Amino acid sequence: MSLRTRQADFNNKNKNDTSMSRQQWLDPIVVTLNGTPCIEEYVKIGDDPRGRLIYYFLFSNDPAIEIDLSLIDNSTRPGLPRSDWRPRAEALVDKLKEKIRFEVLHGTTRN
């Protein structure tokens, strides 16, 4: 199943969901992450257009490696202190993305 087909199926299944946890896959784009071409896709969760970030590293016709980063606000849960968590979470994602490296050697993958 292609990425766009999977995305359309997922969005169609969730189109009537009105909850704050409703997920909507946004259009993927081709980017280069640390010298490696990949597909970057955001999943909107509720009103948050950057609730989930997915990278697909293509070493063949199918995604060979998928990295899925979810930013989840737990500060609204009862008993937990409220905080401005988003800037810290985004800074952590940026640091993680800086460390991602892939090298393809003779049909094998090393990270």
Rank of each mutant, 00 (worst) to 15 (best):
E40S: 13
N111E: 12
G51M: 04
P78A: 14
N34S: 02
A64C: 13
S70V: 08
L26N: 08
R110N: 12
R77M: 14
V43H: 00
P28R: 12
P37R: 05
I72P: 00
A64L: 12
L92R: 05
T108D: 13
T32E: 14
T18W: 06
Q23C: 07
P49I: 04
D94L: 07
I45L: 03
L71F: 13
P49F: 03
G79A: 02
D27L: 10
G35H: 11
L80W: 09
L80I: 11
I39W: 05
D68A: 02
I100T: 10
M1C: 03
T32M: 04
V93R: 15
S2Q: 08
C38R: 01
R52D: 07
H106A: 08
R22H: 09
A64D: 13
L80V: 10
G107D: 06
E66M: 15
K13Y: 05
L69V: 11
L26E: 07
D17S: 08
L80K: 15
D47F: 10
W85Q: 03
A8R: 14
Y42V: 02
T5C: 06
A89I: 10
V93M: 09
N74W: 12
R22S: 07
L26R: 10
L92C: 01
G46H: 03
R6H: 06
F57D: 06
Q24N: 02
T36E: 11
Y42L: 08
L96W: 01
L80F: 10
V30D: 12
A89W: 07
S21G: 10
P78V: 08
N11S: 07
D9C: 05
V30I: 09
V43Q: 00
P63H: 09
K13V: 07
S83D: 03
F102I: 07
I100S: 05
W25M: 14
R86S: 06
G107A: 06
G79Y: 00
N74A: 14
T18K: 15
N14L: 15
D27I: 05
G35R: 11
P63E: 07
L96D: 01
A8T: 11
G79E: 05
T36C: 08
P87V: 11
L53R: 06
T18G: 11
T18D: 14
I39L: 13
F102E: 06
I54P: 01
L33R: 08
K13R: 14
E40W: 04
I39P: 01
I67H: 00
L71Q: 10
E66R: 14
A8M: 12
K97S: 06
R50P: 01
A91C: 03
L26A: 03
K13L: 08
A89R: 09
D48R: 04
V93W: 01
L80Y: 11
D27W: 01
A64H: 13
